[in-house]
Amino acid sequence: MKLTFSIQGGDFTHAGHPSSEVKKVLKQLDIDGKTIKNIVIALYEAEVNVVAHAWMGTVSVDIEENKITIWVTDEGPGIADIELAMQAGFSTASKEVREMGFGAGMGLPNMKKNTDELQIESEVGIGTKVKMVNYFS
């Protein structure tokens, strides 16, 4: 089954809506709690990245019998050096964003940690596309 959501850049108040909705669906499907937690954490991090850095984005979710695939696509500044961004603690977040408690440089590493597959494509000045896959036990 498929779900789609849109994210507004800069709107920290509503970050977390897609991950909460996806969580509800996964709970109804009786997916085990640990897997749900991983998915929710990874998606939330991805959402916050869009909110903190990009102008707007979309979340597309495809749930199949044995796995979930999530694409988070944004129109934004893009990531110049993905390898560098994957390092824990590396952050380009603005002072304002950090003051709100975000931007600690743990977003991408956390997404990596909580997904079975993670692919990131990015073009500077255009935007970023993240694909995350988690398999159900």
Partner: peptide, 8 residues
């Protein structure tokens, strides 16, 4: 609890 469950 919704927040807690999301690890937030």
């Amino acid at each position: 609890l919704e927040r807690l469950e999301n690890d937030q």
